[in-house]
């Protein structure tokens, strides 16, 4: 009788935990994940740090192509153009757009879900960054954005039109929780 009671309460607790830990509206992603930037920004490194802190099995590849996605179950695209980053990678913006588009195409073919993140705020917006945002968002399953980067409502409008869940956070470190939750089982 006592054992039955313990099993029932444990089951109840487990179900409650599952309910509390998961947000039913947000899509789920699987591990391992490949992290790359769309625009060679430095925030990609911060996403790798957050992924490490969230305990997500991941690899960071700044110049990932379709072939590199083989064996990965999720793609994390960190949005925003950096001219210094593009210079450091030795490519121009058109080459980078080409790489990102081919990566998106490959993930579509292999049915690998894409999580887009924009953590650079207002400073990582502008015509060049917006090219990447507009190219990537239609393929995203979910978007996480630091609020100041969505001052003009571009992310809100696009996500509403495309029917993609959008998570807005105040600061970069706040992106840890939604990232963790979206990979939790």
């Amino acid at each position: 009788m006592e054992i039955k009671k313990t099993i029932t309460s444990s089951l109840m607790f487990f179900l409650f935990y599952l309910f509390a830990a998961s947000s039913p509206d947000l899509p789920k992603f699987s591990q391992p994940a490949l992290i790359t930037s769309a625009g060679q920004n430095a925030e990609v490194q911060m996403v790798a740090v957050l992924a490490k802190r969230a305990g997500i099995d991941h690899i960071l590849n700044k110049m990932a192509t379709g072939q590199d996605l083989e064996g990965y179950k999720s793609l994390l695209l960190v949005l925003g153009a950096s001219l210094k980053g593009l210079g450091a990678a030795g490519i121009d913006i058109n080459k980078e757009l080409e790489r990102v588009k081919s990566l998106i195409e490959f993930s579509r073919q292999k049915d690998i879900p894409i999580l887009c993140l924009h953590l650079g705020g207002e400073e990582r917006r502008g015509a060049q960054s917006d090219q990447f945002i507009k190219a990537c968002l239609p393929a995203a399953k979910m978007v996480i954005v630091v609020k100041s980067g969505n001052k003009d409502g571009l992310f809100t409008r696009m996500c509403q039109d495309l029917g993609i869940p959008l998570v807005e956070v105040e600061k970069i470190s706040d992106a840890l929780e939604p990232l963790k939750n979206s990979f939790s089982k």
Partner: peptide
């Protein structure tokens, strides 16, 4: 950059 947020400061990273 993440730790700087505890000071309420935003740090731009450049490679």
């Amino acid at each position: 950059a993440i730790n700087m947020e505890s000071f309420g400061l935003k740090l731009r990273l450049e490679a």
